[in-house]
């Protein structure tokens, strides 16, 4: 089995489990395979020796220490092994994406706040011509509220997935350079 196929299968299985941090595991195995290739081992044989995807999953679930060692290794790789260029580009890409998302979510949040504010202000300053008018304005307020929550959700998601996002970016940049190197 080739690396891409192995990682794809692993990702598919990992995504079925909510208690496993997918990107941490993928980054770990990707690096493991790359190290093996760099030291002259054959890709297919090394992957075969890693065991089946099911075995890996079982290990991840059963051995609590395994996932801790995965994270520790990833931290070490990012800190010491990963090429400086990859890290710089990775942080740069992440910075741009994060900045854009924060700006967009802030705009969405403020728009939502504005719409809610307008709806409230409208209710305070003018009396709707009929009772249905109150509900129509309530509808506007709910749309505003949804934008407000969406803005918060995007920022929260961004910070919750900080490490995972960085690992995805590092892994992709690393693979890109490896392919170019070949």
């Amino acid at each position: 089995m080739k690396r891409r196929e192995f990682l794809r299968n692993l990702k598919t299985e990992l995504k079925k489990r909510r208690d496993i941090e997918v990107e941490e595991v993928l980054f770990y195995y990707d690096e493991l395979i790359q190290d093996a290739i760099d030291s002259g081992e054959t890709e297919e044989i090394f992957i075969a020796n890693l065991g089946s995807v099911e075995d890996i999953l079982r290990r991840l679930v059963d051995e609590e220490e395994f996932i801790i060692s995965v994270k520790k290794k990833n931290d070490k790789v990012v800190r010491e092994v990963l090429d400086k260029t990859v890290k710089i580009i990775g942080y740069f890409v992440y910075g741009i994406v994060a900045f854009t998302l924060v700006v967009v979510s802030f705009s969405v949040f403020m728009s939502g706040l504005g719409v809610v504010g307008l709806a409230i202000f409208r209710l305070i300053t003018t009396t709707p011509v009929d009772s249905y008018g109150y509900f129509a304005i309530l509808g506007i307020a709910l749309i505003g509220l949804s934008l407000l929550v969406l803005g918060i959700a995007v920022v929260k998601w961004l910070f919750n997935n900080l490490t995972a996002s960085l690992l995805v970016i590092f892994r992709n940049i690393n693979n890109f350079f490896n392919r170019k190197g070949k």
Binding site: Y132, G133, A141, L142
Partner: peptide, 15 residues
């Protein structure tokens, strides 16, 4: 919900 409420009550309200 907001779009639904807004669409329905805008249609039936004179506001």
């Amino acid at each position: 919900i907001g779009v639904g409420v807004f669409a329905i009550f805008t249609a039936i309200s004179d506001e």
